[in-house]
Structure formats: C-alpha cells, structure tokens
Design a protein around this nucleic acid. Structure first.
Length: 264
DNA sequence: ATGGTCGACTCTCGA
C-alpha cells in the first residue's frame, strides 16, 4: 500500500503533472491540498481513467482538498464542524477504508490555515483548526480506531526542518502556540512518519520567491501522522524533490509512504 | 541594499 500527500497549488493548473505522476507512481491513495476550485470545476475524468475514485471538497479560488483512491471507501465526510471548527473554508476531508489487516482505517486529508499575519484573526483560525483536529484525533484514538493524518499542516516541527530558523522564529508556522498545538496532537499517540524515517531536515516546500528552490531554502510542513498500528507497518517514506524541478511546478512536492501487509 | 513568484480573480489577496 502506498499513500501520498501533495499540496498541488491548483488542480486545474497542475492536472497534466498530476496525471503523469499518478501514471508513474500508481499510489493507492493520494491526499491533495489547495485544489483551488469548486467541486464542479474539478477535473475528475482523467484521474478516474487511471482507476481512481475522486472525492473533492472545494471552494471558489482558495483552499480545497481532495482524496483520490483506488479502493472504494466505506464512508467519506468533510469538515471539522463536529469537533468545534465551524468554517466555510474547505480544509478537511476524510474516508474510511476496510483493508486487511485493518477492519477499518480512517484516513484524513487536511490543509491547515497558514496563520499569518500574526497576531490576528488568521492566527486564531489556525489555532482553532488545530484544536478541532486534536479533539477529532483524541476521540477516534480513544475509540480504538486506526488513524492516518495526511496533509499540509503549515507547521515546521523542529529548527532543523527549515533552512534558517532565525528567519522563521516569528512566523505562524514556528510560533510557540503552533508548536504546542502540533505536539499536543502528536502526543495523543501519533508518529511523524518522515521524522521516524530519518527525514527530519528534508524539505517539502520551497517558496516561488527569492530563488528558494535553487538555494534549497525550504521547509518541512507536509506531514504523515500515523497511529500505532499503521506506524508498525510503515516500511519506507519518500519526499519526491524531483517534482519541484518540473515545468510549472507546485511550490510543494509529493510525499509518499509505503506500508507492508496492508493490501486490498 | 534589496528585489526577486505564482494562482485565482479583479483591478488585489493569499501564500
């Protein structure tokens, strides 16, 4: 089983790149963020032709998340309103899969608010989103579920996860309250799969500005958080840096994880 | 000393 997450920065602008990548890598499930379109504008046909079911939750122009799955889910739902984050922003979609050895595994795709500028309503929205994600995680883990959180958390977990910690120290992605919310979530019992695989300090995002890619001025903000049983089956993680060098790239690259004994 | 980029949409904001 191969799972992936990719902040694609407009699905319509990046459709060709996504289709080529899906054809090459054939992941079982992909979590996409910043699709930036209404559901009726989402280019589903080419993705479906490659064998995926497409579940999208978008809005006009901004945000937007989607899950692409080769396996038919039992349930799909959107938003975190039930967990205290009431918002019109399209930032959360999840599904349940029944794939051995799991009777059920819950896989969520999230796009956390950036939170800048700080302080202000955007930062409060970021913290409120993280609190709701924490409540959601707490409840599902307490119920004994298998849980995988995929997405753009807009959190730089450690100093090593950014090129210049000094430049980021007052940013919402490194603010102490942001870090508290991320580690409180993780300490519910989730494993940071990239960190566990020795990929702390490997970046997943490089800004379009200031030659950030050419200078390798990146940050690690796209994460895989796994509950205990999926973490036991994790075999390999990979940050596909080559995609940042593609023609018309997203500013984020895809992150993949391979699991063993986790087959439909 | 400092500018440099994209994407969606409108004449500007969000990242």
């Amino acid at each position: 089983m191969i799972l992936a997450t990719w902040n694609i920065n407009s699905i319509r602008r990046r459709e060709g790149l996504l289709l080529d990548w899906l054809g090459d890598e054939k992941p079982d499930l992909v979590a996409l963020q910043e699709t930036k379109c209404l559901d009726e504008q989402f280019p589903k046909a080419g993705i479906e032709d490659l064998g995926y079911s497409v579940f999208c939750h978008g809005q006009k122009g901004f945000n937007g998340v989607a899950l692409l799955s080769r396996h038919r889910p039992d349930e799909v739902s959107t938003g975190l309103a039930a967990w205290g984050w009431e918002s019109n922003e399209a930032r959360f979609i999840e599904l349940l899969l029944a794939i051995p050895p799991f009777e059920s595994v819950r896989i969520a795709c999230l796009y956390a608010p950036n939170g800048n500028p700080l302080p202000g309503p955007k930062f409060l929205n970021k913290i409120a989103f993280m609190k709701a994600l924490h409540a959601y995680t707490h409840a599902h883990l307490k119920a004994g579920e298998n849980l995988i959180l995929l997405g753009d958390f807009n959190v730089i977990p450690e100093d090593i996860d950014c090129y210049d910690p000094e430049a980021w120290k007052d940013d919402a992605l490194r603010h102490p309250q942001t870090l508290d919310s991320f580690f409180a979530l993780k300490n519910e019992g989730l494993v940071d799969a990239l960190a566990m695989s020795g990929l702390s300090g490997s970046y997943t995002f490089w800004d379009y500005q200031r030659g950030a890619w050419q200078r390798n001025h990146g940050i690690r903000i796209d994460h895989f958080l796994l509950s205990a049983r999926p973490a036991d089956l994790l075999r390999q993680t990979f940050i596909d840096r080559s995609m940042r060098g593609a023609e018309n790239p997203s500013d984020h690259v895809p992150v993949r994880a391979r699991f063993e004994k986790f087959q439909a």
